[in-house]
């Protein structure tokens, strides 16, 4: 078993403080769920005060980059200079994606606390580790697993809902809401063993063929199962 990419809150601070701010982030995620958005919410905390809140807004805006972090960052930058982020912590219900992880690094965020990992495109350990490693901007520490079960249950509640805007409806009638949750970090990394080359090779060949078909059909895009539009879903349970 590969070690868990992030540790569970090793900071000296009171766990209750983290849970309190994560609660605020979860509230944002609840709001997102009510408006048919992927339930991801976040708050930015500076000097013990919440200075910005965000929730996923990709479905309403028809824009794949409107993640909770960006919504909050934009509202903060209306009234604060970007330098404030170097003294600010982020609490987000789901691990920041690769894009957000990079954005946070470019803003020089102080610390990031998140709920559950994102095995589709997580940027803080779920898939890649953008918060550490080489780069032009300073690294930041990341702590996962705060109110992890609640974050996962929110996502699961979302996936059993119908999403009429999703371009590829999936058979959701048969879906049921599972309630058991693996402990944080278990089951990761999923199918991501680099030694398992055969699987990887098969997959990339399939993808190449799928893209080729797209090309052959003279630019008329036919969604193929392996290219299911999952950007509007965070940690999905559908695996191509």
């Amino acid at each position: 078993m590969t070690p868990i990419p992030t540790l569970i809150v090793p900071t000296p601070e009171d766990k209750e403080v983290h849970k309190k701010f994560m609660r605020a982030a979860l509230d944002m995620a609840e709001t997102a769920l009510r408006t048919d958005e992927v339930p991801v919410g976040c708050v930015f905390v500076h000097d013990g005060q919440i200075i910005g809140r965000g929730m996923n807004d990709t479905n309403r805006s028809l824009c794949g980059t409107r993640h909770a972090e960006f919504i909050a960052i934009e509202s903060i930058l209306r009234s604060h200079p970007a330098e404030i982020f170097s003294e600010t912590d982020l609490y987000v219900t789901v691990e920041p994606c690769v894009m957000c992880a990079s954005a946070l690094r470019q803003l020089r965020i102080r610390r990031v606390f998140f709920g559950c990992l994102n095995d589709r495109f997580g940027g803080c350990g779920g898939v890649l580790k953008i918060h550490e490693g080489p780069g032009t901007d300073p690294r930041y520490p990341c702590y996962g697993g705060i109110n992890h079960d609640e974050a996962i249950m929110l996502l699961r509640r979302f996936y059993i809902q119908e999403n009429e805007r999703a371009p590829q409806p999936l058979a959701k009638k048969s879906r049921t809401l599972k309630t058991e949750v693996l402990p944080f970090g278990e089951g990761f990394p999923r199918d991501r063993n680099f030694g398992n080359k055969k699987r990887e090779m098969v997959k990339s060949v399939e993808d190449a063929l799928a893209m080729q078909q797209l090309e052959l059909s003279n630019g008329v895009p036919t969604p193929s199962p392996s290219t299911a539009p999952t950007s509007l879903k965070a940690a999905g349970e559908v695996h191509a």
């Binding site: 824009c63 794949g64 980059t65 894009m99 470019q106 940027g123 953008i130 780069g135 797209l214 539009p229």
Partner: peptide
């Protein structure tokens, strides 16, 4: 009519992690 599905992007510079992933999210 979904995001930037299959669109072609021309850039003067190689995009950073954030922008490369934004293009991936946008399909």
């Amino acid at each position: 009519n979904y995001l930037c599905h299959n669109m072609h992007i021309y850039l003067t510079h190689e995009p950073c992690v954030m922008c490369s992933m934004a293009l991936l999210h946008s399909r």
